[in-house]
Design a protein around this nucleic acid. Structure first.
Length: 880
RNA sequence: GCGAAAGUGGCGGAAUUGGCAGACGCACCAGACUUAGGAUCUGGCGGGGAAACUCGUGGGGGUUCAAGUCCCCCCUUUCGCACCA
């Protein structure tokens, strides 16, 4: 560090250029302010509702306390911090909190690796990251810090869970669930990405049959979908992803009676391998069961030529039980699926199927349809069974071609109706919605939409079907066979069954000193002291649930807790939540578009139905920032391209580091980290520092009686200043292109330094100098808080700069009094003329005529016309 | 395969509404100062050309007085969806 004391700079009055003897030393300035800020716990404190100010809740996604802040965090939080500071300066009451998503698997893995209890590991990581955050100078209101692994937080997870249980929103069922062998626990559907674990992208997720707790998010499927239309402040991309995930589709369920196999003629049963055809209705057929299919195209039901079941379908098991050959064939199908999944080939695998030897009856026409088992039928979508209409469905067509199943056309495009089947043969499968029915009995010649309605109504009337809506969204599996999470507050009693822990016994504390092994498998179950409990109903012995909750439960409502983090009468103070919600601006990575953001929306709706809050959605606006890239790849340990924030801060200062993260790219785009760029921003901050320090004395010396003389230089500088104020103010209102905001401040400073001599010589009045310097510092305050606080004080201001009003844009001062007008001839630039801003056409015409270059370009040619774009451009069109 | 976003100097990026392409910064070049410093200041910096000019925003066509921006076709990259009946 320099030996000179930057707080008492030697200001040289030398003409030309900025002094070389004032040094910008962030390594000295930043720790000094950090110290001072630490002594003012209320500096960033939100005020109560009674403050009378308008509220602004700016929130960034809370981090997992890994122990190291990474550049993605720095970028995310620098965006939020700039916004929070700007909003304070705009006079709002700002809530800008931070917390820790502190439960989760890494703590357990670290415990195994370092032989350190998860709580200790987590706590020390939080301390380290908090230190880093404070070092960068983020404006968090730590009084409302939330740490999800503390009992005063997770007790409310338990409280919510019990409320949901009471309302039937939390339930237990045995089903196929996703199992990550690496995590040694179950995962929710949302945590499986392309068949792999969201945490371990190389680990194939297995299917296991387990009894689990689920939250009934599907109860809110329609509302979650509808709400997306109203979330106009959310990126379209996120809304689309959520719509896809919810996956609503309208259609109908139709029951097909299964023909009793024993009553089928012997020759049919024995010829199962010979392929299948649709058979005419048999008078004597009896049934022993039903297959319910889901279809979005009931209008094509007369074209159904087979029934296809998922290999996991219950009826397939029945059939296989009596048919060992079928059993082994189905086994082979399942095996193929499994292999394909392991090969990472999750999408379309080749279609295979087996005829079961059984038939079902099409209730619309009584036809007997062969029942097949096929690998392209998903067990967990719809009913796991379909009617196959090869003529009008891509997949069914492919399958039918392969196995020689009949293809029957039952719809035609409207325009070729007269040509009947002939023309349509060439374009199979014909799947367009706009169509007319043929070969469909009484429904012939109906339009396809009309047919869908009428046929669903017909099915309902006759009692074998109805119009239904199917969602892809499944209930949220929240049980985790791990230690470091919220204990699920449930008891199992021999006599009373499943019994929730009474509210007055909450929280169910997560015991410390648990041995954690690689195997996972509910470590809590190995603690008799935890497992053995008393049934609150009968007083008899009960067994405690030993699974813990998915950590996405923690992050589904943490932002409500921020409004009253010490509240102990409920999860949060309802009055505080009502004041602060919805969140005005939420900022985070797009990787949570489905996971966290859909769970959070669900939780909000549940809380609303519990009358805890009134808002339907958690956040008014959502912003998803881009990734931080280096050398063309996302920063990661394995790529070895990680840049440490501490290292950057040490070298260039916190202001330069965070400002670079805003300057290098617009916040929604990926950011390419280039260290030279950080150095450049640091250099710029140094210029600001030296310029302001050099002229600070002039600004400080201004007395109230001094008047402003409107000299040309001052006017030009004030004009530039107000143009900059206008630009930045506008950007904060929505566009958020902070990169160009910072560029605009750089331009402003360039204008100042170009006039350095006039400013230093007194040609620019001291009152103007004061205005110029103060506004420069105010404009930079959201981006470089250390420098802004320092210079604000150096300018003689005693008030905290965050309480200083944001500069007011003055359009009058910003207006140019002389403008440049490019003059084109046939669209090519020939000259640029300068005229007074309000100049009339005649004046402009004269100026153009007088211009030699324009003359040269038009001489000897016929002027066809001249396009004059007022105040913008002139284009002269010539011929010849 | 379907959908979305993007493609602009050596690099990051700017051009918000069809109106001077390349703001701002980095790198680089030249110069100044100099107790040679990775400090600071000044100037230059898309390609071609001595210049006048001319070419130029992934490629090809089009609309227009005027296109990075609008329309059509194609290529590349990233992201999302992907047997959802």
């Amino acid at each position: 560090m320099s030996s000179s004391n930057p707080t008492e700079p030697v200001a040289t009055a030398a003409t030309g250029g900025v002094s070389t003897e004032i040094r910008y030393t962030p390594a000295e300035i930043e720790p000094r302010w950090q110290q001072r800020w630490a002594e003012q716990p209320d500096l960033y404190a939100a005020e109560p509702a009674s403050s009378g100010k308008s509220k602004y809740y700016v929130l960034e996604m809370l981090p997992y306390p890994s122990g190291q802040l990474h550049m993605g965090h720095v970028r995310n939080y620098s965006i939020g911090d700039a916004l929070a500071r700007y909003m304070w300066m705009q006079g709002h009451n700002v809530l800008h909190p931070m917390g820790w998503d502190a439960f989760g698997l890494p703590a357990e893995n670290a415990a195994i690796k370092n032989n350190m209890p998860p709580r200790q590991w987590t706590t020390s990581n939080i301390a380290a990251m908090k230190r880093q955050m404070d070092r960068i100078g983020f404006s968090y209101d730590w009084r409302n810090e939330v740490t999800t692994c503390l009992p005063d937080y997770y007790r409310w997870n338990q409280w919510f869970f019990i409320r949901m249980f009471e309302r039937g929103l939390a339930y237990r069922k045995k089903s196929k669930v996703n199992w990550c062998p690496e995590c040694a626990t179950v995962l929710a559907n949302e945590q499986v990405i392309d068949g792999r674990c969201w945490r371990h992208e190389d680990t194939i997720v297995e299917q296991r049959d387990l009894e689990q707790w689920f939250l009934r998010i599907t109860n809110y499927a329609q509302e979650l979908l509808d709400g997306l239309d109203k979330l106009e402040g959310w990126p379209e991309k996120v809304r689309t992803m959520q719509r896809n995930w919810i996956g609503r589709s309208e259609g109908a369920e139709v029951e097909f009676a299964v023909e009793d196999a024993s009553s089928a003629p012997e020759d049919e049963r024995s010829t199962r391998d010979k392929g299948t055809t649709v058979l005419p209705a048999r008078e004597d057929a009896t049934t022993n069961g039903k297959i319910t299919v889901f279809t979005t195209r009931i209008d094509t039901i007369f074209g159904a030529t087979s029934i296809q079941l998922a290999p996991e379908h219950a009826l397939v098991k029945e059939f296989a039980a009596q048919d060992t050959k079928l059993a082994s064939e189905v086994e082979a199908l399942l095996d193929q699926q499994k292999k394909a999944r392991e090969a990472g080939d999750i999408g379309e695998i080749e279609k295979h199927g087996v005829f079961t030897g059984h038939y079902a009856i099409n209730p619309f026409n009584g036809e007997r349809l062969p029942i097949w088992v096929a690998n392209y039928i998903l067990a967990d979508y719809g009913t796991g069974a379909i009617m196959s209409v090869p003529a009008h469905d891509e997949r069914d067509y492919e399958f039918a071609k392969k196995y020689g199943i009949e293809i029957r056309i039952v719809i035609l495009p409207r325009r070729v109706e007269s040509e009947k089947g002939e023309a349509a043969q060439d374009s199979l499968p014909y799947t367009d919605e706009e169509s007319l029915l043929i070969n469909s009995g009484e429904f012939n010649s109906l339009g396809n939409k009309e047919a869908q309605q009428k046929m669903a109504a017909f099915a309902e009337e006759k009692g074998f079907g109805k119009a239904t809506i199917t969602f892809r969204l499944k209930d949220w599996g929240v049980s985790r066979q791990r230690y470091w999470g919220t204990p699920i507050p449930m008891l199992y009693c021999e006599k009373d069954g499943i019994v929730p822990v009474p509210d007055d016994q909450l929280p169910v504390l997560l015991p410390d000193n648990v041995e954690i092994t690689q195997q996972g498998g509910s470590p809590l179950s190995k603690l008799p002291g935890f497992v053995n409990a008393t049934c609150p109903k009968c007083g008899g012995p009960a067994r405690r649930e030993t699974d813990t909750m998915d950590t996405f439960v923690d992050s589904s409502w943490y932002f409500y807790r921020y409004t009253s983090a010490k509240y102990d009468q409920g999860p949060f103070d309802p009055a505080a939540a009502q004041y602060w919600f919805p969140i005005d601006q939420y900022i985070g990575g797009v990787e949570h578009a489905i996971l966290h953001l859909i769970y959070s929306r669900f939780w909000t709706k549940v809380m609303r139905d519990l009358s805890l809050i009134k808002n339907d959605e958690p956040a008014e606006r959502l912003f998803t920032q881009g990734m931080v890239i280096k050398n063309g790849a996302k920063m990661s340990k394995s790529k070895g391209n990680v840049v440490s924030p501490d290292d950057m801060i040490g070298r260039y200062g916190a202001d330069a580091t965070r400002m670079y993260s805003l300057f290098a790219a617009p916040p929604d785009r990926d950011l390419d980290w280039q260290e030279d760029g950080v150095a450049g921003v640091s250099r710029f901050l140094g210029k600001v520092y030296r310029f302001v320090m050099k002229h600070a004395e002039t600004a400080r010396s201004v007395s109230a009686t001094d008047t402003n003389v409107a000299d040309a230089t001052s006017q030009a500088l004030l004009r530039k200043l107000h143009q900059t104020i206008g630009k930045i103010t506008e950007d904060f209102a929505g566009r958020w292109h902070f990169n160009t905001c910072i560029a605009a401040i750089m331009e402003l400073l360039n204008a100042y330094t170009a006039a350095d001599a006039e400013i230093g010589s007194g040609k620019v009045p001291a009152t103007t100098v004061k205005v110029l310097l103060e506004n420069l510092v105010l404009l930079i305050a959201p981006f470089a808080p250390y420098l802004a606080f320092e210079l604000w004080e150096q300018l003689g201001q005693e008030q905290n700069i965050l309480r200083a009003p944001w500069p007011a844009f003055n359009a009058e001062l910003a207006r140019e009094d002389e403008i440049e007008i490019p003059v084109q001839v046939n669209g090519k630039l020939r000259a640029v003329i300068r005229v007074a801003a309000g100049a009339d056409d005649e004046t402009i015409r004269e100026a153009i005529k007088a211009d030699a270059k324009v003359q040269a370009a038009v001489v000897g040619k016929e002027i066809v016309k001249a396009i004059v774009v007022k105040g913008k451009l002139v284009n002269i069109v010539v011929k010849g």
